[in-house]
């Protein structure tokens, strides 16, 4: 249980087409992450899956049943929102139990499920509190707990961690990963965060302007991006793109990831001057202004001392250089 099929889903708000034909298959127990630039339609797609928004055309199939005409509460889904969206007038316990109560679940069963969920998320001390009396991290755990008690076929997360501070984000990310392992439920997760996407996902869906650019495992997207957009979107710092003509190449654009460039003070392929150096401890990001390649980023593992203004030569690893055609697609 818990598979999802999206068949040619389109969504328009008035004349503006936000989703332009989405096809996606999610198998039971998979953790799927939607990534893409702001405004590309990630939340809209999630809301169409949840039934909060009607698609203009296309079908949403959950567990083999077409749910296009089913209200959100009957789709067997649960959703966690960026802003937590807890009911301010209810205690933590009632927040978690409301959905089940509405569905007519017996009180004892509700109690049992709240017990399990709250111990899973260490929420027991807070069960009688109201949302206003909780910290941000606790609130988001309650929101996750509210989803867990419904025992849904499908979990939907819309940027659940983006309101949390960095340390809490790492913790909660771990909790979500453990939750997925323990519940073996299907989860769909929207995020802006590269790290969340790479660490949590079984499968990443890269969206851009209402279209799916590529679907694949994290390493697959990193190692063999289908096009320039995916190549630039996955990986941080972002891939360097150099005009092919300036390098005397036939390809329109040449792409090299910052970590696949080496530098040498004496000789190399691209001569450049150091514009700026970022020292992160574990690695160093150098910004080089190269004569041939323009402004590029180089990521060096460990500490590397380079003063702005110094001359360095950067050399790309030929085995890890991507060539893109005029249409943006990777040339084989």
């Amino acid at each position: 249980m818990g598979s999802l099929n999206i068949e040619n889903v389109k969504k328009a708000f008035g004349p503006v087409e936000v989703l332009k034909g989405i096809n996606l298959e999610v198998t039971d127990g998979e953790f799927v992450v939607f990534v893409g630039p702001s405004g590309c339609g990630k939340s809209t797609l999630l809301r169409v899956i949840a039934g909060l928004e009607d698609s203009t055309s296309g079908r949403v199939v959950i567990d083999g049943a077409d749910v296009s005409a089913t209200p959100p509460a009957k789709r067997g889904i649960a959703m966690v929102f960026q802003t937590y969206a807890l009911y301010p007038h209810l205690t933590v316990k009632n927040n978690m139990g409301l959905g089940l109560k509405q569905a007519g679940t017996p009180a004892a069963e509700i109690e049992r499920r709240i017990g399990i969920a709250s111990s899973m998320l260490s929420l027991e001390p807070y069960l009688e509190r109201r949302p206003a009396e909780l910290s941000g991290g606790q609130r988001q755990r309650v929101a996750i707990g509210r989803a867990v008690v419904r025992e849904p076929k499908l979990f939907l997360f819309d940027e659940p961690l983006s309101n949390l501070d960095a340390a809490l984000r790492v913790n909660t990310r771990l909790e979500i990963a453990q939750l997925h392992r323990r519940l073996k439920a299907t989860m769909i997760y929207v995020t802006h965060d590269q790290v969340e996407a790479m660490t949590l996902a079984d499968k990443i869906v890269v969206l851009n302007a209402g279209r799916i650019e590529q679907i694949g495992g994290p390493m697959e997207l990193y190692n063999s991006p289908a096009n320039e957009f995916v190549a630039g979107f996955i990986g941080s710092p972002k891939m360097n793109f150099v005009d092919g003509a300036r390098l005397g190449e036939t390809a329109k654009t040449i792409g090299v990831r910052p970590e696949h460039l080496t530098v040498d003070p004496k000789s190399g392929a691209w001569k450049g001057t150091v514009v700026h150096a970022e020292h992160l401890g574990a690695d160093t990001n150098l910004y080089l202004d190269c004569e041939k390649a323009g402004l590029i980023t180089v990521r060096i593992f460990g500490v590397y001392d380079a003063e702005p203004g110094a001359t360095l030569y950067a050399t790309p690893d030929p085995a890890k250089t991507y060539r893109f055609g005029a249409d943006g697609k990777v040339l084989k």
Binding site: P72, F81, R146
Partner: peptide, 14 residues
């Protein structure tokens, strides 16, 4: 009023 809150209610069957 937060859309998320209303949507959470809809998902909970209110």
């Amino acid at each position: 009023v937060s859309d998320d809150l209303k949507n959470a209610g809809r998902i909970d069957g209110l």
